[in-house]
Design a protein around this nucleic acid. Structure first.
Lengths: 187, 187
DNA sequence: CAATCCAGGCTAATGAGATTAGCTTTCGGC
DNA sequence: GCCGAAAGCTAATCTCATTAGCCTGGATTG
């Protein structure tokens, strides 16, 4: 029996990719095992189980989305930065719905939990957007939560097909960016 | 064997209550059956299965949250209506996290699907908030999506413990209401 | 170079949960 | 009081996750 050459990172990456394809709810140990070319029990040599796998996918996704948002913000400021960050975030969620879904409902145990670290990285990326606005330090946390709620809410609703009716969704998103920009500049 | 006197509505209501208590992911046919005093297979006389149960819980939740938001808005306008609607929405999600979670990822098949009808009721309730503002008809759909994204995003992030750090969450929510109000008045 | 060890695979078995099949019993309407 | 449908039940099946325990290839070491 030839070795498959797996390691935890490879299993998690394959799991994330599969979740994006078939939906997180349809990611089973069996299908993932088949994907990576082993039998299901072998996966347990690399990850602790489904819950652990889910958690690791969440960490991967948070780091990736933090990279995407952080990278998009580079070299921009103000409204440009806001627009770049928001678009990068939404694009990530639309392209990787499965792995992003894995982040929902995960609670970090302690502040050193990789999940907490990754979450902080994403917040830092959004924080960089706020630097481009003149915001009272007392408002920064609230503004950050507002931005995160807007982006998360919009993207997850869209992925879930929560926007039924007519108006163009991309247009709504651009409108929403403009709305947030005006509000932040007015602070 | 005495009849339990069940019907679909009773099963769905019990399922929603149990989901709120133990989390949607831990709602099993077995635990629900025990809760209502029958064996698991008997539930299939009332609902089509787990997927159908989930869907019906989602419809119930959407109708309830629409009632809550719609009721809260009664007799208010402008900022008061916005605040009442947003608070009612968040309060519902925090009190009924399980049944609200059931709404996520449900796609209505056709416009007559009860799910679509319930979704429209919720939108109508939010729409009532917008009437209190002077909004260009071309912006209404976008504003509606913005409001829904904000409320949904904030509430789901809070339920999932997605807000880690210091600042007070209730305070952030009030800040967010004020932010949205200023933005809507400026349109 | 050979003995050893262990990481990484495997098969088999267990156990939870959803679902189906088919039987039985209650209950409303005649 | 009789009948049929509705509402329960038990038993059986299927899919998955997970555990136990075996096996081996290839690096490590003497």
């Amino acid at each position: 029996m030839p070795r498959a050459g797996l390691d935890p990172a490879a299993v998690v990456a394959a799991g994330a990719a599969l979740a994006d394809e078939v939906g997180l709810a349809n990611l089973t140990m069996g299908s993932l095992a088949e994907r990576v070319g082993v039998r299901a029990p072998s996966l347990y040599k690399h990850v602790g189980g489904q819950e652990d796998l889910n958690r690791r996918i969440a960490v991967l996704a948070l780091n990736e989305v933090a990279d995407a948002v952080g990278g998009a913000v580079q070299g921009c400021a103000g409204r440009d930065a806001l627009a770049a960050a928001a678009r990068a975030f939404r694009a990530f969620v639309l392209e990787h719905p499965g792995r992003y879904a894995a982040t929902i409902g995960q609670e970090p145990s302690d502040p050193e939990d990789p999940l907490a670290v990754a979450g902080r990285r994403l917040l830092d990326a959004f924080m960089a957007v706020l630097w481009g606005y003149e915001i009272d330090p007392a408002d920064v946390d609230h503004a950050l939560r507002m931005l995160r709620s807007l982006c998360h809410g919009f993207a997850t609703l869209q992925v879930a097909n929560g926007f039924q009716w007519s108006a163009d969704i991309d247009e709504s998103f651009e409108w929403l960016i403009a709305f947030a920009d005006r509000g932040l500049r007015a602070l």
